[in-house]
């Protein structure tokens, strides 16, 4: 019996993704999130009406992998650029895709003010607690005691301050309508993240305000672990500080 037949297809790569092999390290969470964004765009049939804003960081080349219109912003400025795009083209679905170094460090002002103005955009925030692209330096989101290239004996609160919970901060602002924290380490988590992404994209056309989706992610090469070990490490160490679930939904 021939199982491998198009009539029996259960899952395939969405056509909204390009055929290029992604430059991410093996097991990187970015790939899964890219795939989910592309699947949501495919299911909502909005490929011609979506504009993504690529960040600076590992995801800078996101525009090569998802076949939609893109702009690439200066470091941290993606929400500012998304504001302009959405205001000039209000019939488009506009989203930013940013890491923690981009959104929670250099782009703090842009992020907070875009959310406070309640821009009708989607902000996808990949939080892996480290600067992945530049070699695993400490980020504002790095956990207390976590070892990185610039904190080799672990982050120390008296010296470096507390880890910044950006999503909690954004949930307090009146301009945000949907703030949630998800992850992509298991089948169940992947499905929940996809639902959250779909809801956020739908919100952006309802003029309700900004939707923020934090995806707690791994950086296995920066954390110096295998992809499976880093997923387990994330569940044990990242989740207590960055718990899963909706922080705001109105």
């Amino acid at each position: 019996m021939n199982i491998i037949d198009s009539a029996n297809l259960v899952y395939r790569k969405t056509p909204v993704m390009t055929d290029l092999t992604m430059h991410y390290c093996p097991g990187c969470s970015h790939g899964v999130v890219h795939k989910l964004v592309a699947e949501v765009i495919d299911e909502m049939d909005i490929q011609d009406k979506t504009i993504g804003i690529a960040p600076v960081g590992c995801a800078v080349f996101a525009y090569k992998y998802i076949d939609i219109d893109w702009q690439q912003a200066a470091h941290g400025r993606a929400p500012a650029l998304a504001t302009a795009v959405k205001r000039l083209l209000p019939d488009r679905y506009v989203f930013t895709y940013q890491g923690d170094g981009d959104l929670a460090a250099i782009g703090t002002a842009e992020t907070i003010h875009a959310c406070n103005r309640g821009e009708n955009i989607v902000i996808i925030f990949i939080n892996n607690g480290i600067y992945g692209m530049t070699g695993g330096q400490m980020a504002p989101t790095t956990l207390d005691g976590m070892k990185t290239a610039t904190s080799p004996s672990g982050r120390s609160v008296p010296l470096n301050g507390y880890p910044l919970d950006m999503t909690k901060l954004l949930a307090e602002l009146d301009g945000t309508c949907y703030v949630t924290r998800q992850s992509v380490h298991s089948l169940g988590a992947v499905r929940k993240t996809k639902k959250a992404l779909r809801k956020a994209f739908e919100n952006s056309m309802l003029e309700k305000g900004t939707s923020v989706i934090e995806v707690v992610s791994t950086c296995n090469s920066g954390w110096k672990m295998t992809p499976d070990e880093s997923n387990k490490w994330m569940v044990e160490n990242m989740f207590p500080k960055y718990p899963m679930g909706d922080l705001k939904d109105r």
Partner: peptide, 22 residues
């Protein structure tokens, strides 16, 4: 069993899944 768990978690979208009832 064609549950597609592998394909959902694959970061490089390189898995295609097929399933039949027999």
């Amino acid at each position: 069993v064609g549950c597609a768990a592998c394909a959902y978690v694959c970061p490089d979208a390189c898995i295609t899944v097929y399933k039949v009832k027999i």
